[in-house]
Amino acid sequence: MEAKKKIVTAVIHLACILVSITMLIPFLWMVLTAFKSVPESTQVDPFIIFPTVWRTEAFSVVMENMNFLLLYKNTLLLIFFRVLCAVLTATLAGYAFARLNFKGKNFMFSMVLFQMMIPSQIFIIPQYIMVSKIGALNSIFGLVFPGLVTAFGTFLLKQAYMTLPKDLEEAARLDGCNIPQTFLFIMAPLARSSMVALGIFTAVFAFKDLMWPMIVNTEKDMLTLSSALAKMQGQYTTNFPQLMAASLIACLPMIVIYVIFQKQFIEGIATSGGKL
């Protein structure tokens, strides 16, 4: 029985290790290629896995051609404002939908649910026209625009408030708290973990967004990391070390943050995603 258990454990580890390697190879290959020279990267016979000399040429060329500081800044601002707007508006609306009774509430909430069922591409042309009409193309506001409010986040926060016990609220009211006070000092702090989850979820998807940034911000200085990579791909199709160096620079900060806060990331994305 013990021996059998050991074999089972070994098989499970083997399977997990194989999958983990499959997950890591593209990232490893990205790193290895980025440090090679162009001839090295395309050398077939003999095939080279590790660069003979770890060169940083590709990085310096890419950093010269693309202003990564600016790209980081744009992406960071996009993430910051999307998260801020999403968490703020969804917390307020989620609380009202979960805990307050008022006329028109059900109809308004059905609109929230309705929005969640619609594929987001259908909003894009009108949103683009709006942004261009107010002259906000090539701006941070333009980037943030579709994420000013979030139906999904509202739904998520409503679920979170609904699980909180009713007595707390009643006790607060008996102590003379009005509605905004009850919300601000009693309820909102209790929903903090859901706000963090929504924040992480929003941040990751803002970072990954490609189509919208490509559409609204076309000026070189207003691109995000994702849209800059897309633009770069069209220009240097064969310089693989440079393409990989740029990809690495674009991905690394998020990966480092993820590895540090992996528990919060996985839980945040899974608990949000699990309620989508």
């Binding site: 983990s20 593209p26 990232f27 990205m30 077939v44 674009a250």
Partner: peptide, 29 residues
């Protein structure tokens, strides 16, 4: 550790992921 590694592609930009896979899939090199 397994969970962290398997979840990793989720936090990478699809633009970068596509670029590296394109390179892995390259027919010549």
């Amino acid at each position: 550790v397994y969970r962290t590694i398997m979840f990793l592609p989720m936090v990478a930009a699809p633009a970068a992921v596509a670029m590296v896979w394109r390179w892995l899939f390259n027919s010549d090199f």
